[in-house]
């Protein structure tokens, strides 16, 4: 501890490596992309794969962002998060299909309007569902991890069965809106338009979340609450209410991720959210529980690994992300950007 309160330490004695330490996670993404370039060798394949990887990473981030905050804020493990992904996809896709004449028209404006309405409907429904989920399923099991795991898994199964009841047991195939089909050619590489859109949307969500978390009082409360909820309450804030808000927002974002993923795959199933959760949990863990930035970087890395390895060594694709998680946890056991927990 310093006795010299007015003295400002200088960075002079800090090594270059140590100074880069905070930025290290941010450098992982460009490093992976560069590594991919040398491993793949072909410029056009590399470009196509990279865009596809970033699109996938962004969608996983959108799904994971709420989950990491929910965990960080109230120490709640929600295995049911995938339910919001599935519900979002079904509501969103159904809405767009119902607006078939808009979605089918060769007009970008009408197409985006249809998709926008689909996204709005999906986020509304998953937001309300999240609110009910928090009330009925999560609230009775605050502070009890095992119960949380069991009951949220139960909630997931119930929601999946409700989807089957409403939409039937079969997977639903469909096509993207007219102007979002196909690809543009850039530097000899085919870049799917939809993937570019997904990257833009994911980036927008990340920037918006960061702005809210850094520039607004509610964001400050959330960040402070992730570190020390008790103190936030002692200052006069009702953390429980903030948590419900974060849970609803996180559920709605998962719904958005579901719509995006549905249109990416052009097929939806009741179990699609559950299938995504393995990757989502990997992202939350390697990012550092409670860290939105960490989840963002983690999601991009997972997307890159998945796509590069699938191209280079298809057999290894399945284990690539587990390997990534292991490597990162060996480097930083708390994840890349751990949130300091005061307890």
């Amino acid at each position: 501890m310093s006795d010299a309160p007015d003295h400002r330490p200088t960075m002079a004695a800090v090594s270059f490596g140590a100074r880069l330490d905070w930025a290290a996670p941010w450098l992982m993404v460009p490093a992976l992309i560069l590594l991919g370039f040398f491993a793949i060798g072909s410029m056009s394949s590399w470009l196509t794969l990279t865009v596809s990887a970033l699109a996938m990473g962004m969608m996983i981030f959108v799904m994971a962002s709420g989950l990491t905050l929910v965990f960080g804020l109230m120490d709640v493990i929600n295995f049911g998060h995938g339910a919001f992904v599935s519900v979002g996809a079904f509501v969103g896709v159904s809405t767009v299909l119902a607006l078939g004449h808009w979605a089918g028209a060769p007009s970008l404006v009408l197409n985006l309007l249809a998709v926008g309405l689909g996204v709005l409907a999906a986020m509304l429904v998953t937001g309300v569902l999240g609110w009910i989920f928090e009330r009925v399923i999560i609230r009775p099991v605050y502070g009890a991890h095992l119960k949380q795991i069991l009951i949220t898994m139960g909630g997931l199964i119930v929601v999946e069965q409700v989807i089957v009841m409403i939409w039937g047991p079969d997977e639903i195939f469909f096509a993207r809106p007219e102007t979002l089909k196909g690809a543009i050619t850039f530097a000899g590489a085919a870049l799917e338009k939809y993937r570019l859109l997904a990257v833009a949307v994911g980036l927008a969500v990340f920037v918006a979340m960061r702005l809210v978390l850094r520039r607004t009082r509610i964001g400050l409360i959330v960040r402070a609450g992730v570190e020390n909820g008790e103190m936030v309450e002692a200052l006069g804030y009702r953390l429980g209410m903030v948590f419900v808000g974060v849970f609803i927002a996180g559920s709605a974002l998962a719904g958005l991720g579901g719509v995006m993923w549905g249109f990416y795959q052009e097929v939806i199933t009741a179990g699609m959210g559950e299938d995504m959760m393995v990757l989502v949990f990997i992202v939350v863990i390697i990012g550092g529980l409670g860290s939105v930035e960490g989840a963002f970087i983690g999601a991009l890395m997972v997307g890159l690994m998945q796509n590069y390895i699938a191209f280079l060594e298809p057999k290894a694709a399945l284990i690539s992300n587990i390997a990534l998680m292991t490597a990162i946890l060996m480097w930083r056991p708390q994840g890349m950007m751990p949130v300091v927990k005061a307890k």
């Binding site: 960040r223 402070a224 992730v226 570190e227 020390n228 008790e230 103190m231 949130v339 300091v340 005061a342």
Partner: peptide, 11 residues
């Protein structure tokens, strides 16, 4: 003012 100070170190 708690004994452990309760500082939000990330802020």
């Amino acid at each position: 003012v708690p004994e452990n100070m309760g500082i939000f170190s990330d802020l």
